[in-house]
Structure formats: structure tokens, C-alpha cells
Amino acid sequence: MPSAPAGTLYRGREGMWSWVAHRVTGVMIFFFLLVHVLDTSLVRLSPETYNAIIGTYKNPVMGLAEAGLVAAIVFHAYNGIRLILVDFWAKGPKYHRVMLWIVVGLFVVTMAGFLPRHLMHVFGGE
């Protein structure tokens, strides 16, 4: 295996950056998933323990992190559907760039729906 790649196969642009973003968001989601199963498992210990830990998810810093997590999931989901279309739809490779901008558009619309509601839950009073 060569230790340094000779030349650059990918030249930036939509195809490469969507691939990079898919990897980065995928890793973020995976590590959250490990933590999320562990914190949810605390329901098995006692109601008090679970409520104490889940309470930390409700402070503003964690609330913003959750918004980031949801953003990562939404991008990974929409770009994953685009990836399936590129692989299985005959015209997928031809329209992969257009589909990425559709992904970005749907991402913006979804987050515009989610963020106000979530941030009101996090920052709003009782």
C-alpha cells in the first residue's frame, strides 16, 4: 500500500465534498449512538438515575449539541437517499450534482421546521 497517494483523484466539487460530509456525519452519529444506548440503559437502574442523566440533555449547551446531531442525521439521511439513487437509478450519476442541491434544499427546509420548535423547548421557560 503506498504511503502517499500519487496525484489527486478527487478534485473537490460536489461529489467529493458530499462524500466527505457523509463520512464525517456518519462517524458523529455512530459515536452519539454508543453514548445514547448507554444513557438510555440507565432506565434499568432506577428512575432517579435516568432522570438525573437525561436532565443534563436539557441544558442549553446540550440542546445546541442535539440540534447539531439532528442536522448531521438529516444530512446523512437525505444524502444517503441521493447515494442510493446514484447507485440504482439509471440517470442517478448524471443528476448527482442536481440531487445534492436538492438534498441541501430539503435539509434547509427540514431544519427550518425543527430548529425553532426544538430551541423553544430548550430555551423557553416552563
Partner: peptide
């Protein structure tokens, strides 16, 4: 869990149970 009802605020042992 995050959008319906009271969202993250409503999540506690009773919600999961």
C-alpha cells in the same frame, strides 16, 4: 421524542416507560 408534545423537556423515566 423531540418534536411532538413538549419535545426534549418531556423525556424522563415515565416517558420511556
Amino acid at each position: 421524542n423531540l418534536v411532538a408534545g413538549e419535545g426534549i423537556k418531556a423525556i424522563d423515566f415515565g416517558f420511556v416507560a
